[in-house]
């Protein structure tokens, strides 16, 4: 039975399986292809699930990706808050 995997971007298990079968095999490729992990939670909820799907479809070990690119901001903050540190040099 099909099931939502990425809740933010409404990506289904079948979407991910299809992408893997089409040759998009890594975490990043699946993200770029299906948008899984691109939403407001940035993969916090689906990251580990994606690893499991990859392992299952490719019949390999669960990829032990940390899945955490050191990507700031680590929390979604308002652009206005981010702007407060700017403009010093001007």
């Amino acid at each position: 039975m099909d099931c939502v995997i990425c809740r933010c971007e409404e990506v289904l298990l079948s979407d991910i399986v299809r992408a893997i079968e089409d040759g998009y095999t890594s975490h990043r490729e699946i993200k770029l292809k299906t948008r899984a992990g691109m939403g407001i939670c940035q993969g916090r909820t689906c990251r580990l699930l994606l690893d499991q799907v990859i392992a299952s479809v490719s019949q390999g070990p669960v990829p032990k990706t940390i899945g955490i690119a050191p990507n700031v901001p680590i929390r979604p903050i308002m652009l206005g808050d981010l702007a407060k540190g700017g403009g010093k040099a001007k």
Binding site: Q42, N71, P73, P76, M78, L79, A83, G85, G86, G87
Partner: peptide, 18 residues
């Protein structure tokens, strides 16, 4: 962010996810 808010103030309350 500072520059974007200056040119487009409507962006101020929107959240940046990455």
């Amino acid at each position: 962010a500072y520059h974007a808010c200056k040119v487009v103030p409507a962006l101020t309350n929107i959240r940046i996810i990455r």
